[in-house]
Design a protein around this nucleic acid. Structure first.
Lengths: 399, 399
DNA sequence: TTTGTTCGTAAGGTTTACTAACAAACGTGA
DNA sequence: TCACGTTTGTTAGTAAACCTTACGAACAAA
């Protein structure tokens, strides 16, 4: 031990300290409550459902192999699920194999509908009936006409009445993507555009329709749709009248200490000022990137060929600003995927290209080789799809 | 339904789409493997240990009330823990209460030591023996003298030999905070300063000492210490020769897609250039904030009274740059706590003040009313403490 | 001394998922 | 054609886990 200097007791400048009380008194070791065998069963029940849902029709033995549960246990769980009507038998497997022919089972995909609402647009509330695979069965919408407060809630109830009338199967639940800050219990703490403050929307709708209701912020809902089709940590940036984001970190949605995660619209970009924002600050992300600002700017420049490069530069600049704000987030969380949602004609082109370039130039390339920045594949329906995922996850998945 | 427009089938521009394959085929519903009753028991076992650890000596009945398990179950679990030597009986409770006097039990705090290493300094490896409460029992260190690669590993082994000789109780495990990118399995993928690439440090040390070994990035380890004393989501920024960060989101450490979460040292700050960084870019956070750069700048300005305001401005500017980088992260994650670790004489003063101010000016105040930015209370020992937490959590906690 | 309280343990029951064994149903090959 | 192997799904029994119920021990207060 030539190079080692041990200082067991005597060391003047850095004495050995002894804590009197437990130093790590916080939640270093996370206590998440007791677990009973019945909780284990409900977990395994969900596991079977998930396997069927994601992998499609298959035999009990297939599920057993996939989940590593035994055939006996799977049979038992499936019997329970069939009794509840969540799973159905589809008859015998067609293909010719040795051994007893398998009885195919699957989630009763035709037996359930989900109702989803997107409250994030400024002029209307959109809604849809979806099947369990995320396919949109029917749509409905209602014009806002400036309605706020209680009148807006009434419109939601009317819209849901109409949608529920369009369902042709049992309704698994109602999912709502709302603007503003929404607490985990479905209370809209603050949605300025709708004039809502501490509105218990989930409770209200549950009381009105006697169905499971899930309410969350629109961007936080949208990221669920994206995560459902592309697993892995990601941030979804939703560009509309405002700019919001939803994050999945460690496989879980991020809510934040004040349920305000993803509220990046009013983060200031760069150190060179910028347009004045409605919030009073200069150079907020929204003041660069929000749709009204971009369309107004493009309109100002005109549609002539001569102004084409100026229009493109406007979009590139917005993209650069987005990249500047995202760089610290992508770096700190080591995200592998950034997804944009909003008007394709504005976002998908120079704006997206500039954002990628900026993001790469401002982070350490070595750590983000496989970083992808792309448009969502869900288009305008991303919030509706995400709301459906939220209901599916809440009603069928591991809570 | 006056204002509601339902469009069940006919809607030209936005037809009802029907997904052919399960749309949500990803991991929307997270499948985390089957759960057996024995897993439930090990969970409850940890729950009892956690309760004892955080709340101190108490009776079995106290633990039962706290955990909501029955006295019978707690007795059973405690018997198992006593047999394993993790828990000890301390005799009867002193105070006078009606009923049968309680037998106090507690984690065997005097019976275990943890060995921790901090490899993040440039000139030396530091190590310590800690008791279960995080108190430092003994210290040791070894000078690096420019050692890299295999020689650096040898120094670690020598240091651990010395530390293990100083332990006077059973050793629960070894925790190591290493610079660079460390994968979850304890492989150091890249640590340029030490010349390490894909070094299986955890495996090497386990083989050498036959003890549980946990290895993680130094900043990611440090944030564990902070989280242990202050629950809630937080980011810890560690300022030293470089700048790194560790994050706790949703109560869990963030690792990132490439295990490189927290690597914010080379994120570019602002839109006005900045000092040239070793990585080639201009205006990286490190080029503003790293200790060598700050001390060099302060030295250049001199120690005269006349230069006092210039020195302060240097620190304020560094603080502002930190605030600029943190604003999008704090906004996106809605963090309530930012903690700084590093030389107090540099960080705790104008730098920290400027960072708070900048952070507040660049985010939406409404969402961050209770945002706190402060120095760590762990001082220089934060990585050692965090490494101990990592071992405690891994060996005693819910995995 | 009596009464009520609290602690820890013992006994028995329920739930859970496991292993072992088996019948049914099918292809394969002699 | 028929024995054989394979696969499926079920039945029966076992081990583990936590529960409820009950009880003796030990104490304070009346």
């Amino acid at each position: 031990m030539t190079a080692t200097e041990t200082t067991p007791a005597q060391q003047p400048q850095a004495p050995a300290t002894s804590a009197t009380a437990p130093l790590f008194a916080g939640r270093a070791l996370r206590a998440s409550g007791k677990v009973l065998p019945e909780h284990a069963r409900s977990h395994n029940r969900s596991l079977v459902l998930q396997t069927l849902y994601t992998q499609g029709a298959q035999s009990r033995a297939d599920v057993a192999r996939e989940t590593r549960l035994t055939r006996v246990t799977v049979s038992d769980l499936v019997a329970e699920l069939i009794a509840e009507g969540l799973v159905v038998e589809l008859g015998q497997r067609e293909d010719a194999r040795p051994g007893k022919p398998a009885t195919l089972i699957d989630v009763d995909r035709a037996g359930f509908h989900v109702v989803a609402l997107d409250l994030s647009e400024h002029t209307r509330f959109r809604g849809a009936v979806l099947d369990l695979d995320g396919g949109i069965v029917a749509r409905a919408e209602v014009a806002l006409d400036g309605a706020t407060g209680e009148r807006a809630v009434e419109l939601i109830v009317e819209l849901l009445d109409g949608l529920l009338a369009l369902t042709t199967a049992r309704v698994l639940g109602i999912g709502v993507g709302s603007p503003g800050v929404v607490e985990p219990n479905g209370v809209v703490r603050s949605a300025p555009n709708l004039g809502w403050t501490d509105l218990p929307l989930q409770e209200r709708l549950t009381a009105a329709f006697h169905l499971p209701v899930h309410v969350a912020n629109d961007a936080n809902v949208a990221v669920l749709a994206e995560h459902a089709t592309a697993p892995g940590d990601l941030i979804l940036v939703k560009v509309g009248h405002g700019v919001g984001a939803g994050l999945i970190v460690g496989g879980r949605p991020v809510l934040g200490a004040g349920s305000a995660a993803g509220e990046i619209g009013h983060v200031v970009v760069g150190t060179d000022g910028g347009p004045r924002c409605a919030c009073g600050k200069h150079g907020c992300l929204e003041s660069w990137l929000a749709v009204p600002r971009l369309t107004a700017e493009l309109e100002r420049l005109g549609t002539t060929d001569a102004a084409a490069s100026a229009r493109e530069e406007t979009l590139r600049e917005a993209g650069r600003r987005l990249g500047i704000v995202l760089a610290p987030v992508v770096g700190a969380l080591n995200l592998s995927e950034v997804v944009l949602s909003g008007p394709t004609e504005l976002l998908d082109g120079p704006l997206l290209e500039a954002a990628v370039e900026t993001l790469r130039n401002r982070t350490m390339a070595e750590h983000h080789r496989d970083l992808r920045l792309r448009m969502t594949a869900h288009g305008q329906d991303i919030v509706l799809r995400g709301a459906a995922v939220m209901v599916l996850s809440g009603q069928l998945g591991v809570s």
